[in-house]
């Protein structure tokens, strides 16, 4: 469409303006990166310029202080297992809700939809008590179970719309061939859900990886900290020690930025699809 009209001077001006705007968007990242490799004195005297000399020890010190590999591993375990659970349990529930719309199941679907409205802050107080009674405090499996609970309603809702679009004939043919109801779901329906599964996993990954308030309430133990928790407590201890704090921030942000750069096409498609459907 654009190629036919040709690349005019006007388009060039728009392009230059857009690039300048993008650079403005990136300025905060420039400040953080460039100052994370400065000595403390250099950083205080000269926050805007390039470093006089590169102080990579900022990174090695933070790496050890926050025990970065441990925090990274905790975040990874929680994100991966919570994602798997949400995708599997929600797709199973959505399948049953669509194919067996009994009174109970319709009511349940309504409850799932209604629950998407509940903000986390309005149930966090009793949640901590329930988690305590159920033995979910201070353990990664406990945190993962919390994510199951919070992720299931939205994921079920999204899968529900998708299952409805799958023609019943495919399943009927399989049943005639003697496939069990479980086989029909796992071997036929679940693979067909893949595009929606990918979208749900990507969007949930961003949410779970970045989440702060829930893990801060459920995980007091320092050795179980996820990346946001480790960064936050580090920041509280080393406030005004910007050289270390900034290196810590870069370490905290890097994994999710890399993840985004690799997955951006799918992530942006997922948002677009979700918003168009409303």
């Amino acid at each position: 469409m654009g190629a036919a009209r040709g690349y005019t001077l006007r388009t060039l001006m728009i392009e230059i303006f857009a690039i300048l705007l993008a650079l403005l968007f990136l300025v905060p990242f420039y400040f953080v990166l460039v100052n994370s490799v400065k000595s403390f004195a250099d950083l205080l005297l000269n926050s805007a310029g390039l470093p006089k000399e590169f102080v990579w020890t900022n990174y090695s010190r933070v790496w050890e202080i926050i025990n970065y590999p441990k925090a990274f591993l905790n975040s990874l375990i929680v994100t991966v297992i919570a994602n798997l659970g949400i995708a599997v349990f929600s797709s199973m529930a959505a399948y049953r809700l669509v194919r067996h719309p009994s009174k109970f199941n319709n009511l349940l679907f309504g409850v799932f939809v209604a629950a998407m409205v509940i903000p986390f802050q309005s149930i966090m107080i009793p949640l901590v008590k329930v988690a305590n009674i159920a033995g979910l405090l201070n353990s990664l499996p406990g945190l993962i179970i919390c994510y199951f609970g919070f992720g299931i309603s939205l994921a079920t809702f999204l899968f529900h719309g998708f299952v409805k679009a799958i023609p019943l004939e495919i399943e009927e043919a399989a049943i005639v061939d003697g496939t069990s109801p479980y086989g029909v779901f796992w071997r036929i329906v679940f693979p067909l859900l893949k595009p929606m599964t990918v979208t749900i996993i990507l969007l949930n990954s961003l949410w779970i990886w970045n989440d702060f308030l829930l893990p801060s309430l459920v995980i007091p133990d320092p050795s179980l900290r996820t990346i946001p928790l480790a960064t936050s407590s580090f920041f509280a201890q080393y406030t005004k020690q910007w050289d270390l704090a900034l290196a810590g921030l870069v370490l905290g942000v890097t994994p999710i930025v890399i993840f985004f750069l690799f997955m951006q096409r799918h992530i942006i498609e997922g948002i677009t699809a979700g918003s168009v459907k409303g």
């Binding site: 199973m92 919390c146 199951f148 309603s153």
Partner: peptide
């Protein structure tokens, strides 16, 4: 089948969202 397909979702959802929500209204 109902238990198998719905059970896990219903269990985690009730434990983490529904019960705390009702308790919160009481508190």
């Amino acid at each position: 089948q109902q238990l198998y397909f719905i059970g896990p979702s219903l269990f985690f959802f009730s434990l983490i969202v529904l019960i705390p929500f009702v308790m919160g209204m009481y508190y």
